[in-house]
Design a protein around this nucleic acid. Sequence first.
DNA 1: CTGAAAGCGCTAACAT
DNA 2: ATGTTAGCGCTTTCAG
Lengths: 325, 325
Amino acid sequence: MLNRTAGQTISDETRQRVLQAVAELDYRPNRAAQGLRQGRSATIGFVSHDVDFGVFAASAIKGAHEVSVRHGNLLLLVNTGASKRQAAQLVGDLLDRQVDALIFAASGTKSVVLPEGAGRVPTILLNCFAPDDSTPSILPDEVRGGREATQALLDLGHRDIAYLTGTVSSWATKARLRGFRQALRGAGLDPRGHTVLPGNYHADSGYALARKLLRRGSLPTAIMCGNDRMAVGAILALLEAGVRVPEDVSVMGYDDQFQLAAEIHPALSTVRLPYDAMGRLAAEQLAAGGPAVQTGRTLVHCPLVMRDSTAAPARSARSARSARG
Amino acid sequence: MLNRTAGQTISDETRQRVLQAVAELDYRPNRAAQGLRQGRSATIGFVSHDVDFGVFAASAIKGAHEVSVRHGNLLLLVNTGASKRQAAQLVGDLLDRQVDALIFAASGTKSVVLPEGAGRVPTILLNCFAPDDSTPSILPDEVRGGREATQALLDLGHRDIAYLTGTVSSWATKARLRGFRQALRGAGLDPRGHTVLPGNYHADSGYALARKLLRRGSLPTAIMCGNDRMAVGAILALLEAGVRVPEDVSVMGYDDQFQLAAEIHPALSTVRLPYDAMGRLAAEQLAAGGPAVQTGRTLVHCPLVMRDSTAAPARSARSARSARG
DNA sequence: CTGAAAGCGCTAACAT
DNA sequence: ATGTTAGCGCTTTCAG
């Protein structure tokens, strides 16, 4: 009666009596028992497959949590420390606790093989994908992100853009770099004429790479960075050398990192990695009864966020002209 | 038998048969049913009482998760968005799911009143405390942290130290400031002679405050910041003005923020906010059967981490002398 | 030492 | 319209 089964009737009087008793005893149904009976726990397993969950796992969790709660589900959280063995173990623990579904998230987009048994409940991969795409996955559209960031710089009038990349072996780096080259080519420029320096996503690699650029004598008018942390590192190096951002050179980040990109001076122009939206999407599909139709990869747009670290190039007469025109 | 009840005996032959069946059917006990029967779910509720969980909640969760798993428990995670109503609701949801214990965590140390019902299971407050200290809580020792950071600067030879604070109304800010003044007084200095500028923990407030310092004409030899983000903001302002860190002025952060403090250039000297250790401690106490003996507040040490953003002051003859002596 | 049975708290199906 | 019952998967107790 408390669950209002359809097609059931009950007299008003009885209902009142029950409701009053509920209030008086302050009765709360035992959801474990309920779950046992109904075969669903109203609980979703969230696996963070990473050494430690950083800012990104946190946003994804927040997004997933938000919509899960709205659907009456709670998140059973687990962190694998990026270990395959731990992943298998913990997914088992989750399954034993009868989770209704699984979100398997990695930070640092990559290919993962799901621990066996995971297939026994609806599963969605977040920021990672199965080698054969047999499990539906949600991924950021990094190629487009890289392209649009580059395009924004191009539109500002920049023609000489350097790219300080993140870890080159990573999926995200490759994708963003591809977008970079696409945009360049689209503007009739030869990507090979543009400096690409390999970094590793850490702030200090942005610093080191920017110094390398500085040492060469001639700076590009704009610098794309593997992520916001590298952008901060690069800005530090630039400032230290007396180079102004964005007056002398524009800097573009990536991630729109929480409590960093918007707060730094100058506020970073960047591309937003929509982990919260991705988490929300995953939880939504799961709440709608599993990733029914969903197969393969779902690409989520990474919106460009223009702030103060980018501007039209000032030095080159040519770009200044085209910026004005 | 699978649980090896003490005082039970079983024949070797039967044991083998059972074990084999388990292996063949790849049987996994249903922990929901187990929990129903035994009255414990092997699940701990983790409440993040904050708008969104940032880096700190993440470390606390990681720490708590780590030791929980070691004890066979999993974390049921919930985020209240800092809303009292949501907190009450979600704690209810957690309790309905029969969590064995509760960790109630806030980022931004503050006083909280626990939603009623929370008292029905062992509960520990993380980074927050009850107004009357009726619930045991785990807090960072901010006074000591502020004091030791200041002392480190003093030991380096600094005598003119400015403090760019975090949000002044916050518990942490007040505590760190108290430590700052204690250290100053301990060195025979008058705190009133030292500049204290109120900020808000955001990177841009560090930037703005440092500029204010710059505009005054005479810089202190060292700057303490409310946190690492403010320190980064301050460094940005300093560099922009041609002031070198740490050659011209030392900068001290607070938090030892993941992927920031150690990676920035210069690497930040700071005080580590041990959220992971605090999470571990909470989970440990809970696993040991509730915060039995534990009452009132447990203060966790915030270790000083000296890196490259601090050095002996160079300009003042007096401080240079005492540094050498 | 092994097997059977009761019951954790709940809900769905069925009698009344 | 209300009351009763069986059983979700497990553990504990009690007979055999």
